[in-house]
């Protein structure tokens, strides 16, 4: 199993160069059955990452480009009248894929955003009275452009909370970018990626994640972290119980990726920036994005023992 996961990572890393840690986080997020928010500038490889993950894990892949005139029906699908048999036939929208890339999610209106986010949470959609389950596994990678905010609808805290992790890819290292420039176009490499896992294997692995042992000592550490976010005056709001659950789930997935069947504090620390960063607000700047500094404070000051 470990070798399978390792080869998954290796395959994605072939396409997305020098982003080993982010790829690992994205995979951990997927294994923990969470959704991923990618926040980065255009052209950093967001689409490549999601596409490559879909290929390697053998998932069906759909991309939805969010625009301001996108309607919920464009995401979920509509019923169309069939003149031949005189009935409405449901045409499923792009959300009925196993891996959905919601590109530039903040460009759409809150109405369309919430259509996606509801589907993410419930793992099913209700259209015209009929409830239709989404495929299993179901994994959403949403992207946001943090820079050009004109005409966008920023996701509120309640919606951000539904993403297990938020990561940003960042500029590649010099060596990685050189390899990128020297090598083939990345998009050409994608179709050649072979699936490493099938659905059954992926489901088995996902089912194993909650079984990773989290000792009382680690849970105490998670509690200390959460308590710090709730009691320290620098934090505008603390982590919710959903946040602490997410933290533990992500840490379990990370431990599994490291080939361990138990969680150590370093696992918690590894996923903490991605899991807690978008859920924390600096008391001095409640509207801004002070989460990163706060997470660094947590990592530095809260002792694992």
């Amino acid at each position: 199993m470990r070798t399978q996961l390792e080869s998954c990572l290796a395959a994605v890393n072939q396409v997305l160069l020098g982003k080993d840690r982010q790829v690992r986080l994205a995979l951990a997020c997927l294994l923990a059955r969470g959704h991923l928010l990618l926040e980065d500038l255009p052209g950093m490889g967001k689409t490549t990452l999601s596409h490559a993950l879909a290929r390697v894990l053998g998932l069906s892949y759909q991309r939805i480009q969010f625009t301001s005139d996108l309607l919920p029906g464009d995401i979920l699908g509509t019923s169309v009248f069939n003149r031949d048999n005189g009935q409405f036939i449901f045409h499923p929208g792009p959300i009925f894929a196993e891996l959905v890339l919601a590109d530039e999610i903040n460009r759409a209106t809150p109405k369309s955003q919430s259509a996606l986010l509801e589907a993410m949470e419930e793992r099913q959609v209700t259209i015209e009275g009929a409830t239709r389950p989404l495929p299993e596994p179901f994994f959403v990678i949403a992207t946001q452009n943090p820079v050009s905010q004109g005409g966008t609808f920023a996701l509120p805290e309640s919606q951000l909370d539904r993403f297990l992790m938020r990561i940003s890819l960042g500029y590649p290292a010099r060596a990685a970018e050189k390899a990128l420039l020297l090598g083939e176009a990345r998009r050409d490499l994608l179709p050649r990626l072979e699936p490493v896992l099938d659905h059954a294997a992926l489901a088995r692995i996902q089912a194993e994640v909650p079984g990773i042992h989290a000792s009382e000592a680690v849970i105490d550490y998670v509690l200390r972290l959460v308590e710090a976010t709730r009691s320290q005056p620098a934090f505008a709001l603390g982590l919710s119980p959903r946040g602490s659950l997410a933290l533990l789930a992500a840490a379990r997935a990370w431990a599994m990726l490291a080939g361990r069947d138990y969680v150590i504090p370093e696992d918690v620390q590894a996923v903490l920036p991605a899991v807690a960063g978008h859920r924390l607000r600096d008391a001095a700047d409640p509207a801004g994005h002070g989460g990163g500094a706060l997470v660094q404070w947590l990592l530095r000051e809260v002792t694992p023992f």
């Binding site: 150590i264 504090p265 620390q269 530095r300 000051e301 694992p304």
Partner: peptide
Amino acid sequence: RGAGEGPLA
């Protein structure tokens, strides 16, 4: 050991 440092790190 730094305050927040884990055992393996």
